[in-house]
């Protein structure tokens, strides 16, 4: 299958590990990702919350470009995913808004009829490609690695999507088939605070401390994430949390695509694992060192 790839702003540089691992695993699974030419920022939560027609038109430009390519969008970033999907929903339910947005798009010779579907890589991997075909290509087993799957907010909410909103299980299923031991992680859809790390730091630090605490309590070797913002908060602020709360967290944070890449036998550098702040635990290290034939 071919998809229109929409990396989103944070995957360009700060979260390059996500971008690199998505591209690599899709290549390995023989799926073609064609990056949307000259895509623009989807507007993210912030923009969506302050402007109406402008924010919808900005994100609809990407949908229109993908429609022209005749492909569905694949958006790994949770915020992009939810904003693009939300734009679709608003445009289909409020015809007046659809008309206004098309009027704005027409300024640059674009129009959007509403056909582009917005998909998340996790959905495509599990529901389209299928766990069985992925396992077929697996080169390594996760061998009892204790994984805490953290879904965050925006890929499962607000509307009923590809997984359950209160207890999503796609990552649990995927990685347990890869040999991992999925730990009990009741905080799997609890918010990390997102941009609050910039605006209300104290609150966001507390939320992230609770997420880490829960993973540690259940002896997770690694937390796997699906969202650049969750990833940044959990990884980049772990030191600060240790400092403030007098804790000693050292939990590696990996994108689910990176962990899957390890299973598929891809190298550390191809998966952007060299960009991680927190070194992987010895157990994961030993899995990664397994040479396959």
């Amino acid at each position: 299958m071919k998809y229109a790839y929409y990396p989103g702003c944070s995957l360009e540089k700060t979260q390059r590990g996500y971008d690199e691992s998505v591209r690599e695993i899709f290549k390995t699974l023989e799926q073609e990702l064609i990056e949307i030419e000259d895509w623009n920022c989807c507007g993210a939560t912030i923009y969506m919350s302050v402007k109406e027609t402008v924010s919808l038109a900005v994100s609809a430009r990407n949908l229109a470009l993908a429609e022209k390519m005749g492909l569905d969008i694949i958006a790994p970033c949770s915020s992009c995913f939810t904003i693009l999907a939300k734009t679709n929903r608003i445009l289909s339910q409020i015809p007046e808004m659809h008309k206004n947005v098309n009027e704005a798009l027409a300024e640059s010779g674009l129009s959007y009829s509403g056909k582009t579907r917005v998909r998340h890589p996790l959905d495509i991997l599990v529901n389209d490609i299928g766990i069985e075909s992925i396992i077929h290509k697996a080169k390594r087993s996760l061998n009892g690695l204790k994984v805490a799957p953290y879904y965050g907010c925006q890929i499962v909410r607000p509307e009923k999507g590809f997984d359950d909103r209160e207890n999503p299980i796609l990552m649990d299923k995927l990685f347990s088939k890869c040999g991992a031991d999925i730990v009990y992680y009741p905080m799997k859809v609890r918010c990390c605070g997102g941009m609050l790390m910039t605006t209300f730091e104290e609150t966001a630090l507390k939320l992230n401390k609770e997420l880490l605490e829960c993973a540690e309590k259940h002896q997770a070797d690694v937390i796997v994430t699906t969202c650049p913002l969750c990833h940044m908060n959990l990884e980049g602020y772990q030191d600060k949390i240790n400092e403030i709360y007098n804790t000693n967290f050292k939990i590696p944070i990996l994108y689910f695509t990176q962990l899957l890449g390890i299973v598929l036998g891809l190298s550390e550098s191809k998966l952007g694992l060299d960009s991680a702040f927190i070194p992987v635990t010895p157990k994961l290290k030993s899995i990664m060192e397994v040479q396959y034939v």
């Binding site: 402007k51 027609t53 402008v54 919808l56 900005v58 430009r61 947005v101 300024e107 640059s108 674009l110």
Partner: peptide, 14 residues
């Protein structure tokens, strides 16, 4: 430039 045209128009609509 084509993006800013879209934004400008959308602002008018708003």
């Amino acid at each position: 430039h084509s993006l800013s045209k879209i934004i400008k128009k959308a602002q008018e609509i708003d």
